[in-house]
Simulated assay, not measured.
Amino acid sequence: MSNWYFIDLVGTSIFAISGALSALNKKMYHDLFGISFIGFLTAVGGGTTRDIIMGAHPIFWIRDPNYIIVIMLGVGIAIVGRRWWFNQLRRPLLFFDTLGIGIYTIFGLQKALSLEVNNWAAVLMGLMTALFGGVIRDTLVNDIPLIFEKHVYATACLAGALLYVLGRTLEIDPNVNFLVSAASITLLRLCAIRYNWTLPRIGNQ
């Protein structure tokens, strides 16, 4: 198992934890299927949409059952752990979501580039991979999706994706480029949460 494949599985599990926590935050304690379903869609929604758009078949989680396994593990961790280390669900939800978007923006971007799409389309595919699962999650639990809030969120993903494209153009080592770009997304998002950074408002309303 390669290091990047392992990171991909870990990232999938992180998104599943994020989705399950969101369901638990809505008091879905007795609906195991609902919690699992939201965790599953959060974990694979963005990557599935990306693969469908780019015609990449079979879709990754259909081809490789390990993704289903780590999703179920992530859901189980969220359910079991909520009583002893998830004291406040809002914070861990944001934390796991932030880790996920950092990893998957760059993973999605890399996959798009491997299929020889142009750089701008690859950036959009990276953003879709990272963000669309969260949009599905928030919609299903009747929350406003995070990308529509005023805080820095999608902007962090865009900045990291552009940084990766720049590093690729400058022929920086791919592993270093991945780590720096993904870390920049995570750090920027965490700083936005910590210091309440927001984007400037458009218009007077």
Rank of each mutant, 00 (worst) to 15 (best):
H30P: 00
M54Y: 10
S36Y: 13
V117S: 00
I101T: 06
V44L: 11
F86C: 08
S114P: 01
I53Y: 00
D64V: 02
V123K: 12
F60L: 03
I71E: 11
I69A: 14
E116F: 03
G76F: 12
I101G: 03
G45H: 05
R82S: 12
L127S: 12
I77C: 10
G74R: 00
L32K: 07
I52N: 02
V44C: 06
G46Q: 05
L73V: 15
L94P: 00
W61F: 11
G108L: 02
G47A: 04
A56W: 03
L73W: 07
A121Q: 14
G126V: 15
G76E: 06
F37I: 14
L89H: 10
A56G: 00
N25I: 00
V123E: 11
W85I: 11
D97E: 10
I71F: 10
I106W: 07
A23L: 14
G39P: 03
Y67F: 13
I35D: 03
A56L: 04
T105E: 08
M28L: 13
Q88C: 04
G45E: 04
I35R: 04
G76D: 07
R50L: 03
L93Q: 13
A78T: 12
A130T: 15
L32I: 05
I69L: 09
N118Y: 11
I77M: 14
G45A: 02
E116V: 01
P92D: 07
G102Y: 04
M54T: 07
D51E: 12
K26S: 15
I52R: 00
N66W: 13
L109C: 02
K27D: 14
D64M: 08
F37N: 09
L32W: 06
I68K: 01
I62Y: 11
G100C: 06
L73G: 12
Y67L: 00
D31N: 13
G39S: 06
G45P: 01
L89G: 02
L89F: 12
G74F: 02
G39C: 03
T129Q: 13
F37L: 14
G46K: 08
D97H: 08
V117R: 00
W120R: 03
I77S: 04
T49P: 00
R82K: 15
N118D: 15
M28W: 15
I103V: 08
L41V: 04
A43L: 09
R50E: 02
D31V: 10
V117W: 04
G126Y: 15
M28C: 10
M72I: 12
F86G: 06
M125D: 05
V123R: 11
Q88F: 10
M125W: 11
L115T: 05
I38T: 08
L24D: 12
H57C: 00
L73E: 10
G108C: 02
L127W: 15
G76Q: 06
F60W: 02
D31F: 09
F86M: 14
K111R: 13
T129R: 15
N118R: 13
